[in-house]
Design a protein around this nucleic acid. Sequence first.
DNA 1: GTCTAACCGAGACGGTACGTCCTGTCTTAGT
DNA 2: ACTAAGACAGGACGTACCGTCTCGGTTAGAC
Lengths: 213, 213, 213, 213
Amino acid sequence: MSVHEDAGERRARAGRPRDPRLDEAVVAATLQLLAEEGYAQLTVERIAARAGVGKASLYRRWPDRVSIVLEAVSRNPERPSAPDTGSLRGDALTYLRTLVCYRSLHFDAISAISGEALSDERFGDAFRAGMTEPTIAGLRVILERAVERGELPAGTDVALLSSVPPALLLAQRLVAGRHPDEAFAERIVDQFFSPAGELPAPDPVDPDESELP
Amino acid sequence: MSVHEDAGERRARAGRPRDPRLDEAVVAATLQLLAEEGYAQLTVERIAARAGVGKASLYRRWPDRVSIVLEAVSRNPERPSAPDTGSLRGDALTYLRTLVCYRSLHFDAISAISGEALSDERFGDAFRAGMTEPTIAGLRVILERAVERGELPAGTDVALLSSVPPALLLAQRLVAGRHPDEAFAERIVDQFFSPAGELPAPDPVDPDESELP
Amino acid sequence: MSVHEDAGERRARAGRPRDPRLDEAVVAATLQLLAEEGYAQLTVERIAARAGVGKASLYRRWPDRVSIVLEAVSRNPERPSAPDTGSLRGDALTYLRTLVCYRSLHFDAISAISGEALSDERFGDAFRAGMTEPTIAGLRVILERAVERGELPAGTDVALLSSVPPALLLAQRLVAGRHPDEAFAERIVDQFFSPAGELPAPDPVDPDESELP
Amino acid sequence: MSVHEDAGERRARAGRPRDPRLDEAVVAATLQLLAEEGYAQLTVERIAARAGVGKASLYRRWPDRVSIVLEAVSRNPERPSAPDTGSLRGDALTYLRTLVCYRSLHFDAISAISGEALSDERFGDAFRAGMTEPTIAGLRVILERAVERGELPAGTDVALLSSVPPALLLAQRLVAGRHPDEAFAERIVDQFFSPAGELPAPDPVDPDESELP
DNA sequence: GTCTAACCGAGACGGTACGTCCTGTCTTAGT
DNA sequence: ACTAAGACAGGACGTACCGTCTCGGTTAGAC
């Protein structure tokens, strides 16, 4: 390390360092509360209490309540991979099955702030970064492979089609009030990610009576 | 004083009647504030101020803040009809074009409460009643006609397919941050409501660079 | 009142008027807490709790904690009168006896803020207005009568002499830790407000062992 | 290692010894802040900042904030002596003139905690030890000499009379807002420490317009 | 000359009070 | 009986300080 070490860096090391476990505890508590009671009921004091942390430790890390929430819902490093199974149907099924088994806590938390994306740009960014972008990116790869293989026609609107599953999963959660399951993932695959002629036999379950909106 | 007169009614008629214009002003103010600043920023005092009304007049009509919001977002009797143009593509195009020209204020207001549907049953009901159900009902009719006509295979998941447009419209609004337009409606129709073989020429706009999520 | 009535005044009458009992409750609670636990331990939340009042009602009336305290200790409308008994000794005895029987709560409260008078002009003003000025004013009258009568020499430093009792009462409270009583008042009168030659027989109590500082 | 050596002492000597200059810096900073801004505004962090010291160094030396203040105001070993000039007037004048030239910083600091003496025994002790007792002790000697000389009558309330100057000096500081000066000391001597018949000519300054309370 | 234990500044930690703002209720005066 | 205005108790906001703790680094005395 250079002897001309930056004074700011040296200074940054002075004093007791922040406990990184608190970051985790706060993020976890925020996601729990968001998922359990919604954004409107979320208070800083309850986050602090749930995390077993003082309010000052929150405000040392984030400037306000909104920033805490944004960090919590944006922390989504895991993204399902898009393995090449050889067919569109296989790829999509693998991918969406993994997705619906995804951490439902994070899914609910980010759904709880969806409405705020309308009025606050930062929520929009967090929503995209935590929810739609990682989901869509994988689907896009799968769909492009399918177009190359000829399973889908060249004119297929890949961008639109790849946005359907996250939109349906969100709507399913908001409208039906329960977490999308593997059966729902399969239903999506059957309808939208199966090349024509490969449609399976009609679902024995009467779709009109399903809980779909 | 007639003894035949119902005491309850007489009592209800006694004194100065409520000014019905205040109801409208409150509902309008609530929808504006919801659309502009989101549910989290919505306060009773700001509703009252925007409507030019005293807080007591709000609490005389509704028991609490949630009820005000629910009434405001539920006031949406208008539902686009589903005229029979003779083809799935024509029906869907007519229907969705009408839908995207829908009152955007109401659309935004109801989107703003979508996240609360997760944690509060009443918001879920209002969201369904105001957003998804009226939209889906029309589409269902259209799709069932298309199945009868043979434009869609018998195994088509009508319930799932009819839920795609509202889900995409909501996601488009939340993710792209702007109102869906007629072009977006056409894109949906092209991809999902055109019988195989009737797909139009590929869209000159590169879909990868569109603002779709 | 003028017909050109000030709009501000008219406006001041709109809405629910403030409950004057709350003012009293707050002042009483503040004086109690000041006297019981001192200024350093005095918190707004404890004042509010003791008075059975919301914090907002405090901040509606006063801008901050200091102002609440200042109002409480400045509320001292009662001032002992200075009746003319015909002699300096009689006047002073009557006056000081009344004084030591004075509301000890208020006496303690104002003593508790004495130190703040050093650093904050407002506390100095409140201290003067609530403690020294009303006490001294009466003594001054008594002393001036005594000079006229010839009971005190013409060169008597009336201002200095009239400031002795409040100073001694304060010091007695702070140093001895108990309220000055009638015996203490009599001791002051004997020493400072009895014309030469009228001194009573030496006090049987050994003054060296008294609790005087 | 000698077995005779006290383990506690050895332990006490181990490691780096405390820097005694920090003690001084802290005491000085505390007295300054007390005098400048009062006890209520005194915070440990401001003491540390003013002294250029870390908070831990304070809490290594004293258990809490109160203890710091008590040590600071108790560090006052100097006490004016009471030289025998041969007359009450001369003794008192010498003594009180010295007193008013006293370190005004310490005088203010200890005055600032006077109010806390009411509610906290430790402050009462410190106040007595630092303010009234050393002052009164000297005056008592002077007054007892005067009684022996016959300058004061045998019935004189020495305890009461000796408590007058510190009480007046404190009151003068708190009420008038400025430090007592030599003129004030002389005024006290003229009124209370001059044998009858030895009163000087009336003060040319109109006492009614003086700043005395 | 190490070794080592207590020192030092800095600052994070849980907790409490500040003064502000909003909720849902209430109490005025006026329509 | 309605209206606007606004006071009321209660509670969350974001800030500042308390007394404790933990970090990297310093400094005397013991070995």
